[in-house]
Structure formats: structure tokens, C-alpha cells
Design a protein around this nucleic acid. Sequence first.
RNA 1: GCCGGGAUGGCGGAAUCGGUAGACGCAGCGGAUUCAAAAUCCGCCGCCGCAAGGUGUGUGGGUUCGAGUCCCACUCCCGGCACCA
Length: 873
Amino acid sequence: MQDKYQPAAVETAAQQHWDDTQAFRAVEDTKRPKYYCLSMFPYPSGKLHMGHVRNYTIGDVLSRYHRLRGYNVMQPMGWDAFGMPAENAAIQNNVPPAQWTYANIDYMKGQLKRLGFAIDWSREVATCTPEYYRWEQWLFTRLYAKGLIYKKLGTVNWDPVDETVLANEQVIDGRGWRSGALVEKREIPMYYMKITAYADELLEALDGLPGWPEQVKLMQKNWIGRSQGVEVHFPYDLSTVGKSGVLKVFTTRADTLLGATYVAVAAEHPLAAQAAAGHPELAAFIEECRHGGVAEADLATMEKKGMPTGLRVVHPLTGEYLQVWVANYVLMGYGEGAVMAVPAHDERDFAFATKYSLPIKMVVRSTHDAYETVVAPWIDAYAEHGKLVNSGKYDGLRFDAAVDAISADLAAKGLGAKRTQYRLRDWGISRQRYWGCPIPMIHCADCGDVPVPDAQLPVVLPENVEITGRGSPLAKMPEFYECACPQCGKPARRETDTMDTFVESSWYFLRYACADNATAMVDERVNYWAPADQYVGGIEHAILHLLYSRFFTRAMRDEGLVNISEPFTNLLTQGMVVAETYYREQAGGKKQWINPADVQVERDDKGRITAARLAADGQPVVIGGTEKMSKSKNNGVDPQALVDQYGADTARLFIIFAAPPDQQLEWSDSGVEGASRFLRRVWNYGHAFVQEVRPALPAARKLGTGELPGALADVRREIHTHLKQANHDFGKHQFNTVVSAAMKILNALEKAPREPAGAHAEIAEEGFGILLRLLSPITPHISHALWQDCGFGADILAASWPEPQAAALKQDELELMVQVNGKLRGSIKVPASAGKSDIEAAALASEAAQRFMEGQAPKKVVVVPGRLVNIVV
RNA sequence: GCCGGGAUGGCGGAAUCGGUAGACGCAGCGGAUUCAAAAUCCGCCGCCGCAAGGUGUGUGGGUUCGAGUCCCACUCCCGGCACCA
């Protein structure tokens, strides 16, 4: 054993041992409970960032903890390898996406191994390999045959200069990020997955997920957005529209129908197009609505604009004529592309009506008498439910009765009915990009859209391709798209769109169970491992990825591929890693971001930061606040440098100790120093244990059989108290306080009296054995080495998890706090067996109580067992 | 804009069921060791106050013997918003 802690040597040896013994190879075993520990697989962007290290450290802690608890643990890893960054890198550096991706995977895999994660690498998958995506294509054809995938028009961001479709993040202030051109909305045919067919099940099954954070379930519930409402039909006014028909709208506020004063349609709505013919101003407005992106956040925050069409529809109950407006906030892809407007009781309609001087008709009076009439400015009470007024025969009805009566009358006229609506929309999966899974369809002039037959799968993505950032690369490759129709054999055109990368990540966790199967998507092993007992990943995936995965698992269940519905039994959403930012203002007002590693911080005598300077030139820099680690803010800390300098255990320890897993983690170089210092102390204690303590151990252990001297009994109780706390915190996934408990145990061991030597050695042996096992999930390398060197056993992986002993926790005397009128005034010591009246008497007699009661008689005495006594005077 | 979350010393955080606010660590200060430094060890450390004591968990109210924790209203920060992953 080395005198000094040398992390590199310790970690290399431990990792070699795990490799040699194939320690983390997971094999199906029905005799032990299984524990499938899943972490969100990374996009191979180049090198690991701190968010990855945090994610996988949390997963590894859970995996190793459960292993020592006796579970058959499987912890796999793979690569979410398709996506836009590979194409961007190709444009920038002229490297083919495949080559770039595989090189990144190679490098990042080495980094993961260096961090000592207990991963079963035999199950590795990379989604960009035909071995993986062929099954995605295969499933696509099954779901297509079933009608669960269909084609319709969808709206995308179109860059007219680069002639390409842009992702929302590539649209900045309404312009293409590369070309700077004004982005337009464009409708193109796309394939959709019918996730809405599962909307009710996805919603209702949330109640059966006790292992998921409430906030995530709530977000998913709101995202699905099931609402009960009424579909209302407004018949066209023949004299203005020129044809018969109805305008359909959906409303959750049918009680306010009599307050509808106009209707609004989307710019793409057929009525808008009709009105625009021969109405140049309106046509110009509709053209203006086409500019800008499709992101909901932009649409919701932009200025609400509209224009009348001159067309009218008929109110279904009153027969009045209502104006049809075109409004930029009404979306064609949502519902029927039309809304009824009730300005008196809807804030957005109110703002619009006020702006364009449209009539406002109050039809609900708030039950709280919050208002007499609806006048500006808007107050929230206008939108509350209440009794109907100005609504003829419906006057006096409250919400439920009003909706019932109005929907019944609409139904009688054939102009509407109650309906359930969802906010959730079907999932558009077509992408006009190269680096993705090809959609296995062939378009034939005679036969229409024909799925690629099983025998021709996979449709392999060509890897030698030129990426320019203009247009879709596959659509420029005849060798890819020219093919024969599988049905009639005539020349046909292969689909050149690829799939959304969320499709790959919707089923990778099932493929891990049987990644080596070349003849089926999944096999019976999936029913041993799935569902994942624990899923660990970023909160930013709370809705899309997790909802798609829940949907996919059900779709695969209904194909008979798996026998589960929910893919993830427990979910842990980890917080972000943030760090301080520093910058200098440059001439044009542009900020030059400076990496924290290059900055020196000055503090006052209380440790408060007063200034920061660039180390290179000694000149001040501006402190910009803490932000998520990112390239753009140049505040990232390179995990590789950290591991090179301090070792993997220090990196892991700091990350676990600095914050609870679900909260944001603030980077701190001195915190890393502290973690490293603690591990050195652990090592030094282990060294002293071997040298001095071990030789003093009695041949026959007496611990727990006889009386310990009081001071050593206190040390032992303290250790077991901390262990109890640590076990409780492990259960809560609050690993930062597990580290605290480990630190407290080491503090107690170091301060323990050395006499009598035999008794001390026994306490030390028990306590240090507890400490090493507590730390082993977090800092596995040093724990492995010390476990062996200190003679606890050959391999800590074979050890069992420590449990606190009741006898060690026993206490004879308790200290209780004494309060007078709720303020802490002192404390008393009582025997653990003392009854309530004894405690009361002792508290009243105490010096502190006497002093602050000032001779007054107690009105009431509250005794909280084991905690405190509160005397009220 | 809509949905979800967060706020506790100089800093990260702890406080299990409404019961000692600030555990553990970092930074800082004082001391020991050292030729000196690093490392290590010991002590102090919310704020005001010489002390007694007062005060304190984003802000303002409320419930309670007792509130960081429960209730109401607000402020600021963060995540998501369907083509970043």
C-alpha cells in the first residue's frame, strides 16, 4: 500500500480488475431481483461535458448501491448518434457526419471508461448503425400498415435563400441563422405518428407512476391537455360567403356563447384565402402572417394583429351576423383553425376587441360581485365562472347548467355538440435532413405510397455525401432515391426525408436488453429487464422525450413486442450544471466571454467577492452571474482536465456532494479541492489503520457482547447514527447528505479515543468498514483499494450493504430544549425513560425557565418527546 | 404569453411528520508546525451588540404554544413550449 493517495494508480488498478473479472456484465437471472438502471444516452458531440458526468455519476451511484443490496444490476450505455450537429460539423469542417460521429463515440467512450462507471459495454448501441435503425424502419412499416402512421401537411420554417427547412433554434428573430433571410411558414407533406390515439391512456396511466416526480406528471398532464368542451358550428352567411357551409370552432366556455361578437380564422384558412381574392390589403396581411417562425413561444408573445374579411357567419342560437376576422394568433394546425371570440370574458379576445373597436358583450356576472360591467382595464375576475346575464332564456344559469342547456340546444339544431379535445397533437416525424434514419417509403406514380418490404430493409443511409447546408442532401442523390416500386416494379422514387431523432430515443432502452439480436427488434430478454427500474436524465426532457417513449412502448406492446406499458418505473430528473461567467465588453458592445479558469478573483476580509481580473493581463473583467455551462458563455469546465488532475473519484465525489441530484449544481474549483482533501484523509486513515490499528485487534472480537467505555460507546453510536441517516438518504436519492454522513463518520473515527487499544481497534474496524461501503457507490476506486489493503475482503463488490445496529444506537440520556413562549432559552438533560410529568417538572425547575418566566405561572406546557419543552406563560 | 420549478450565512447546501435554523463542506480569520512556503493539525466564524440580549430562511400578510416547512398575495431567477438534444 502506498503512503500517499495516488488516484491515477488506484483507479487504473481498480478498472483493470473490473475489466479482468467482467464485473459489470449483466446476465438474466430469475433468482435475484433485477435492477435495470438507465441513464439518458448522450449525443456524441465530441467530448463529455459536465452534465454528462453528473448524469452518469448519479446512475452509477444507484447501480453500485443496488448491487451491494443484492440486486442483479444492468447498467447499459449507448449513443443517440443521429442529429443536426453532425451536419453542422460537416459544413464547418468538411468531415462526413458518419466519420465525425464515430470518432466522437470512440473518444467519449474512453472518457466514460476513465470515470469508472459500472457499465455493461456488451450491450452498447449506436442509433446511426443499420443494425439499430433497421428495426426502427421495420416498426415504421408495421405502424403504417396499422394506420398509426399517416401523411398530412405540416407547417415548417422555410429559409427561402438556403432553400431549406430550419429547426426552431435555427430561427433567430425571424431570420435564418446562416442566411439571415426572413423565414416563412411553408406547408409540406409529412408523416405523423398518431400519438393522440393513446392520449387518454397516456394521461390516465400517469396516476400509476408513483416513482415519477409530481412536477413531471403534472407537466405531461397539462401537455396532453384533455378538456371537455363544445364544438360550435357557425353557418356561413350566403350573401357574403357565397356558398353554404359551417365554420367549426371548439370552446371550453360554451356558457359564454351569447357573448361571442366575432370569429377569427387563421391566415391559412380557406375563408381567409377566399376573402383575399380581390382584396389586396387582406392578401398583403395574409402574406405578412406567413413571415416568421412556427415556434409557439414566438406566436404567443408577438403582437396580436388582425383584419376583417368582410365575410360573415351566423350565430347558431341568436341568428345574428358575426364578422369573420383573420388573426395572426389563430393557428391552422390546431383544432379547426378558427376560434369564436368572447371579448368580455377572455383576456386575449378583450385585448384584440379593444384594439380594433369590436363589440364587447358581458354575459357572465362573477359570483364574487367583482364587477358590474366589463370595462377596461382587464381584470382576471372577468374570466371567472358565474351566473349568466344578457343571455335570454339562459339567464341565471351557472357554468355546468349553462353548458348543458346551450349544447343541448345546439345539438337539437344540428349545429354543435359536446366534445373532448386534447392539446396534444400528432407527432410529425419527417425531417428534410440527411443525418437521420431514412423513412422506409417508396412513392410510385401508379401505386401511391408503398412501404419498403421487410426483405429490402434496412434502407441504408449512404455515408459518402456532400453537405452544403442548402436543400436536402438525399434529394440530390439519384443513386439513393431512384428505385423500383415494390408493388408494380416500375421506376419509383424513394422517400428522401429522414426521421426525427426522438424516434431513435423512444425505444433504445428496450433494445439494450437484446442489443445483439440480428433477427428481431427485441426478444424475450426484454421482458426480463424492462421496464427500467430507474431512469436518470435532465429535467429538460420532462415532456417530449418521456412522452414519446411512453407512447412508443405502448405502440410496441400493441404489436406484441413487449408486455409492458410504462418504460420507466422510477424517474430522477437531474438539475443543470452551472458556473460563474466573466466577460469584457468589446468595441461594438459585443461581449467577449472569458473562461473562469483564466480569471483570478479578489475577496474582502469576509470572503466576499469584490473584483475579478484576467490572469493573463491583470486587468478587470465583468462578473456576469452564474449560467448553465455552455460553449457560448465560455464557462464550461472540461471533465477531462478535472480527471487528469484529481482523478475520477474526486470528480464524482464533488459532483455528488455539491448539490442534491435534482437541483442545479454550481461549479466550484475550491469545492473540488475539498473533495480531493477528504479522499486524502480517507486514504491516510486507511494507511494508519493498516499500520497501527489492525495489529491491536483482539483475536476474538468482543464488539456488541460487553460494555464499551463511555467515550467509545459514544463514537460507535455516532457512527451508527450517521449510517442510519445515510441509508435513509440513499432511499430518498439525496446523495449529497450521504457524503456528509461519510465525512462525519471519518471525523468521529479520527477523534475517537485510542484507549483501550483493543476496544478502539474494534470500533475503528467496524466504522471504517462502514465508511468504505458507504462511499463505494460514489468513489468506487479508492473504496476498492482500501477494502483490499485493509483486509476487509478480496473485492468490495462482493460485500453486503451495512445496516445500523439497534444496540449501538441506544441512548441513556437525552437533551431536550427548553422554550419559554416559543423562544429557545436553555436545555435540560433527562433519562431516556423519563415520563411526560417528570420532563415537565425538570423543565419548569430549570434555571433558564425560572429566569424567563419571571415568576409567572405557566398557562400551558407543550412536551415534544425527544425534542423540546415549550412553556407558555 | 402558457405550463412546471426554485429562492436559507461571503458561497454550495442541511434541517425525516409544524418542534434546537445554518449539519457537512468551501471561502475567510487566528494559532501550531516549518529556515520559509506548500501540505497538515487545532480554534473561531449568520447579522447587530462589550455584554445581557435582540434579530434572521426572497417580499407583504395570515394560521399556530411554536412556521424555512401550512394558507393567501406578490417579486425575481431557471426549465419546457412540439424541427437543439
